[in-house]
Design a binder for these strands. Sequence first.
DNA 1: GCTCGAACTTGAACATGTTCAAGTTAATAA
DNA 2: TTATTAACTTGAACATGTTCAAGTTCGAGC
Lengths: 243, 243
Amino acid sequence: MAIDGQSPTRTRAGARQLIAPPKTKRGESSRAVILQAALDLFQERGYEATTMRAIADRAGVSLGGSYHYFPSKEHLVLEFYRHTHELHAQAIKPLLSRERDLAARLRGTVRAVVITCEPFHAVAGSIFSTVANPSSPLNPFGGTARPLRDEVVALYAEVVRGSDARIPSDIAEMLPLTLWLYQMGILYFWIFDRSPGRLRTLEVIDETTDLIVRLVSLANLPVLRGSRKRVLSLMKAIVEGQA
Amino acid sequence: MAIDGQSPTRTRAGARQLIAPPKTKRGESSRAVILQAALDLFQERGYEATTMRAIADRAGVSLGGSYHYFPSKEHLVLEFYRHTHELHAQAIKPLLSRERDLAARLRGTVRAVVITCEPFHAVAGSIFSTVANPSSPLNPFGGTARPLRDEVVALYAEVVRGSDARIPSDIAEMLPLTLWLYQMGILYFWIFDRSPGRLRTLEVIDETTDLIVRLVSLANLPVLRGSRKRVLSLMKAIVEGQA
DNA sequence: GCTCGAACTTGAACATGTTCAAGTTAATAA
DNA sequence: TTATTAACTTGAACATGTTCAAGTTCGAGC
């Protein structure tokens, strides 16, 4: 028995290991068919109820097959996550090119998140918890999922940049990351939301986006100057320490 | 193959089932010895690296033994969580009876959280992710862990109540829950903190507790009245909808 | 002291994520 | 055409959390 704090058979080894993309036509098609099977099954049954054996079955490959292309089951979820991000980005394109009001842009963007994710609502809980795990490759503060997180943050940067709101530069710098974090909070709320049509979440989104925009505009008040400076420099320190 | 979104062998059944407390001396001692073994092992090796077989071994019972007293491995963590809560409550007793300044009470309380949890820092990540899982019995928004969460919220109510700060009643009502949520955020930051002596977390605590107290005192400003009302009624609606 | 049954204990069996040594395929070089 | 070899595929084997039918213990009631 190992006493060194590591299990003798640490099953997470593969999770850190990079896997080269397919090198042949056959490989490409195998990867695609496995991924599609996984995406479908996650949506049909949820994360935990989807077994690697079921994925292999539906993809028409053998059990070990997926592991040639994806280091772990979690990595398959990462692709799932990327997929919904692309749906979301696509969905808000018209809004972002038409609307200039910051509150409306923000509201529309966050509403689009939960609307895009609605088909996966039943599944979302277990995925979220995997995402929250600091040692998971899906953790947005960690390594593997970092690029995807940066894409989402960039999307919120675009929400802010394309608006006609005049925002002090120190706030504008931190706002996208803050909004991403805020979106995570909304998603967590949405997971617990059992109201019909997820109306409660939509209400909370409307109310909070409005509040955020109002708070940003209030931040210039003399009484708030001090706190604002402190908040922003704290956030900056945290972000920099993280990188 | 089941297509109904439930795995044919749902292994979470036991997790919801209540288990009666031991009825005999032998049962009591078995439960205690299993729990102690689990607590020790979690601390030594972490959550994932601790196997049910190892717990059974150290406790001197057979593999299935634990399942007579704890419905799942996660329920053993719940006890672990309760244990640290008790350590924490004990640790801040002197502070709460001596100090009256709100900022100092809050700072001391939150500092005590991370100091109490320090021995489990390496383990905390996997535990946190279990806690975040909406379908886990450990989830504080869910069922089983609710009483424990209420205890922690009550502790923050005491932090506020025992201070000499004069806080508007509508804020005072929501503050304990907010502070509990804030503490969760700090813990999540702390999990990622690799600075020596966890100094960065302590700095963030000092800065943020100060900011919170300052914000509370600013909330009476006329310009902030509107936002404050909206924030508080939103929070109230959320809390009530949750229950 | 004896019996009965609830409380407790056991460990084989199961489903699952992951590993890996061995096998198969097919594109390129000769 | 044939040989070479990297890419790809396979499925048995492993460790693990959990279940459960079958056994054991021991105190209450006679």
